[in-house]
């Protein structure tokens, strides 16, 4: 019986971590290519609204998820044109993207406020899902969770085991040098920005289609910013982003239980625990014995204008 409770708690942790993993892994790729997109929150919330709207119109969770990804991608394309194409300031563009996304999401979602949908279906494999203790956790999740796990592995493999991943990291490290070598700095960066946008949109769609299957304005509640912070504290490493997201999810669930149990501590303080715990853990992780070089992609946030 207690095993089932543990499993239930772990499943909620996983659910809380999934949107952060999706948005974080996308932003990680963007930042590894040397672009800082601070608009994750905006792309996420727009993805949530667009995803819910498409799902309501088509009555399909799959199309809704795709719609959410497309929404994030659309916003990121705007960001890419501004910062990669026109060499605009990335910080200012990213912040305005967040504001734009928040506004647009209100517009798209206006007619859906208060409407409810069935949550995304969970996997059901006879035999496996019913395994005591681990069945529901491993074989009973919705598709977003498996997709998030797959993305983390795929991005890790892409960045460290493929030539294109090497090119992407190199461009994020020094765009002048890689341009001189004839690598396509702006093309790679633009594609990375699009990937990041699609991931953030998908993370948003997860919220409105699976986590809490309805639309409400501002429902991302700062998760985009958490995802951004996770990428930094995870030292731009995919597996650490996933670990950080799980830790954050875990702390969130635990503090809820702690509040419910009535520990006597102010609720506001407990609400801050997940943030503090995540930052602390990732800071400890990133305290390496480095003697030089830089942990961050060295060209991060710097605009690039080629001469030709």
């Amino acid at each position: 019986m207690t095993l089932d409770i543990v499993q239930m708690v772990l499943a909620t942790v996983l659910a809380a971590a999934t949107p952060l993993i999706l948005a974080g892994i996308g932003e990680l790729v963007v930042e590894r290519s040397g672009v800082l997109n601070l608009g994750v929150e905006g792309m996420m919330i727009f993805g949530a609204a667009a995803g819910f709207a498409v799902a309501m119109q088509t009555d399909s969770t799959l199309l809704g998820a795709l719609g959410g990804a497309a929404g994030g991608l659309l916003l990121s394309a705007l960001f890419g044109i501004l910062t990669v194409g026109l060499a605009a300031n990335q910080v200012a563009s990213g912040l305005s993207l967040t504001i734009l996304g928040l506004g647009l999401s209100g517009l798209v979602g206006a007619s859906y406020v208060g409407v409810k949908r069935d949550p995304a279906p969970h996997l059901q494999i006879p035999g496996l899902t019913d395994l005591p203790g681990v069945g529901k956790l491993l074989f009973g999740q919705d598709a977003f969770v498996y997709l998030a796990a797959g993305l983390v592995a795929a991005v890790w493999w892409f960045l460290w085991h493929t030539r294109k991943g090497l090119t992407l990291r190199a461009i994020g490290d020094d765009h002048v040098a890689t341009h001189a070598l004839g690598l396509h700095v702006r093309k790679v960066r633009f594609l990375s920005v699009l990937f990041g946008g699609a991931c953030a949109g998908l993370g948003g769609a997860y919220l409105s289609l699976a986590y809490t299957p309805f639309w409400s304005p501002g429902m991302t509640a700062g998760r985009g910013w958490i995802a951004l912070a996770l990428v930094v504290f995870a030292s731009w490493k995919p597996l650490r982003v996933a670990a950080g997201a799980l830790l954050f999810g875990g702390a969130t669930v635990l503090q809820l239980h702690a509040q419910a149990a009535g520990l006597g501590l102010p609720g506001q303080l407990l609400s801050a625990v997940p943030y503090l715990a995540t930052i602390l853990a990732l800071v400890l992780l990133s305290l390496g014995q480095r003697q030089g070089g830089s942990l961050a992609p060295a060209a991060l946030g710097r605009v690039f204008t080629p001469s030709r």
């Binding site: 090497l166 990291r169 490290d173 040098a177 690598l183 070089g293």
Partner: peptide
């Protein structure tokens, strides 16, 4: 240019500082 057999040793080295020697070479 490289396919035609032209190689270049840059004055301001076009190397990525945070990549390894092998990675920098593999790039091109």
């Amino acid at each position: 240019a490289r396919r035609l057999g032209i190689g270049m040793v840059f004055q301001h080295f076009s190397l990525c500082e945070n990549l390894t020697v092998a990675e920098n070479i593999a790039l091109v």
